[in-house]
Write a protein that binds this DNA or RNA. Structure first.
Length: 196
DNA sequence: TGGCAGATTTTA
DNA sequence: AAAATCTGCCAA
């Protein structure tokens, strides 16, 4: 019997267009294995950042030391610190040298809830992994994961038998340029989406 | 609901 | 120096 649904997603998954990967990531499960602790959550909200006509994309002004992982192969993790406080976790997409990515904005907690609550220092389930900074803190994602190949532990993405129903498309959150592009996607009616 | 502090990295 | 793909707390 095939059990591919328990294996990390493979290269062909990440090689589709950035918008396709963004939409396909909805409903998939992000897993982080640390010493003795496993946390996992279903991806319920994402944003696509494109290399052409998208001034909000970190890669829009060319490659720098910070955004270098964005120019690597699809399926690489791009993690950066924002506002001096929060980490944001992105999945690199597109061709090598292109500089596209999908920002993971919210998860539905599935595994390791106690660990997540401890890392967050909060007991609010609704906000546990809702928002890009929150989910990184709960999942234990930081700069050590920057550039990591998401096909391998300790940080990877899998598909289970979850069936994605309705996907809502909106403009992106928290940006000051390219504000009208419809590149944010989330699972309709999911309570862990950061905002409607 | 709105305004702001928090505290780091990058170069907008 | 200013800005950055944010969050939580506080006051009204």
């Amino acid at each position: 019997m095939k059990r591919t649904h328990c294996q990390p997603l493979e290269q062909n998954f990440y090689s589709a267009s950035t918008v396709e990967v963004a939409r396909s990531l909805l409903g998939k499960v992000l897993v982080h294995e640390t010493e003795g602790e496993v946390t996992a959550g279903r991806i319920v909200e994402v944003e696509a950042y494109l290399s052409h006509g998208d001034e909000a994309c970190h890669a829009a002004r060319g490659q720098t030391a910070r955004n270098a992982p964005m120019f690597g192969p699809a399926g690489t993790a791009y993690v950066y610190l924002i506002y001096g406080i929060h980490y944001c976790f992105n999945v690199v997409t597109g061709k090598v040298g292109e500089g596209e990515a999908v920002l993971i904005r919210a998860l539905e907690p599935l595994l390791g809830l106690q660990t997540m609550f401890r890392r967050r220092g909060s007991d609010n389930l609704k906000k546990l992994t809702s928002g890009p900074g929150n989910l990184c803190r709960a999942m234990g994602i930081n700069l050590t994961h920057n550039g990591h190949d998401l096909r391998y532990p300790p940080l990877y993405i899998i598909a289970d038998n979850f069936q994605t129903a309705e996907i809502v498309t909106t403009t992106r959150i928290g940006i000051s340029s390219a504000v009208n592009l419809p590149l944010r996607f989330y699972l309709a009616h999911n309570p862990y989406v950061s905002r409607k």
